[in-house]
């Protein structure tokens, strides 16, 4: 690993993004618009908005970063630039850390905007610290980046990569406790939801919403999400091969 190469890679990814202002606008604005919509969908029932809104603050960064990373790494694979980079003195860790850093930065801006809008613009009722909300959102973004990187190895076109979103994200979305509390699900589904990382992301958000100080459950949830992200990043690194058939 080399810090200079990691930073150069992150700067390059951000520079690529800068040439695509429409993508930046979509990444930053769509979560805000969704929260805004949701607030007025539940106009008569602010308590429901509190529940779903906090969960969504954790889910948006995961989905956005999953999509962005899977497409970006797939492009890197299909354009031949990945092969070129791996034939150069660049560590796989440098490349992955560079991507994680660049998209992490975008995710930070996205989360700050969405959290600020939800808390102060839409009156989302959260007992805990906004900083904790932001921490969970960032870990979720990292998890999304990791999943996207991993999945891109199994897609041979951008068309396939997009199809992985419903396959990887939707089941987690259904089972994470957003639609029904996890302990009220059919026991098999509850067991499945216990091993999906998004469940812990949503649980962590709900802990922040309900308690003023970080609870033991919150710490566990954060560790699970962070641990999953690191694990999947390592798996993703293993899919980058210097030699290919």
């Amino acid at each position: 690993m080399s810090t200079a190469r990691t930073l150069a890679t992150a700067a390059r990814v951000l520079r690529q993004l800068r040439h695509d202002p429409r993508s930046i606008a979509l990444m930053l604005l769509v979560p805000c618009v969704m929260l805004f919509l949701l607030r007025y969908v539940f106009d008569a029932d602010p308590a429901t908005f509190d529940g779903i809104g906090a969960s969504l603050l954790g889910i948006f960064p995961l989905i956005t970063m999953f999509l962005v990373t899977s497409i970006a790494t797939l492009r890197e694979r299909t354009s031949g630039t990945l092969e070129r980079l791996l034939a150069m003195p660049l560590g796989k860790g440098d490349l992955i850390a560079g991507y994680a850093l660049a998209f992490g930065l975008v995710a930070t801006v996205q989360s700050v905007l969405a959290t600020a809008l939800a808390l102060w613009g839409l009156g989302l009722d959260v007992v805990g610290s906004p900083w904790l909300l932001l921490l969970v959102a960032l870990l979720d973004a990292l998890l999304g980046t990791a999943l996207g990187l991993f999945v891109s190895a199994f897609a041979s076109s951008e068309f396939q990569a997009v199809q992985f979103m419903p396959a990887v994200i939707f089941p987690q979305l259904l089972l994470c406790g957003l639609f029904a509390p996890r302990d009220t699900m059919q026991p098999v589904l509850e067991a499945v939801s216990n091993v999906l990382p998004m469940s812990y992301a949503v649980d962590a958000m709900n802990e922040v919403r309900a308690y003023a100080d970080p609870t033991g459950d919150f710490v566990r949830d954060v560790l699970v999400v962070g641990g999953c992200a690191v694990l999947v990043l390592v798996l993703g690194a293993a899919t980058l091969r210097r030699r290919t058939a």
Partner: peptide, 9 residues
């Protein structure tokens, strides 16, 4: 970018 990968720093 490629130059920075080859001779970083």
């Amino acid at each position: 970018y490629f130059a920075a990968v080859l001779t970083p720093g």
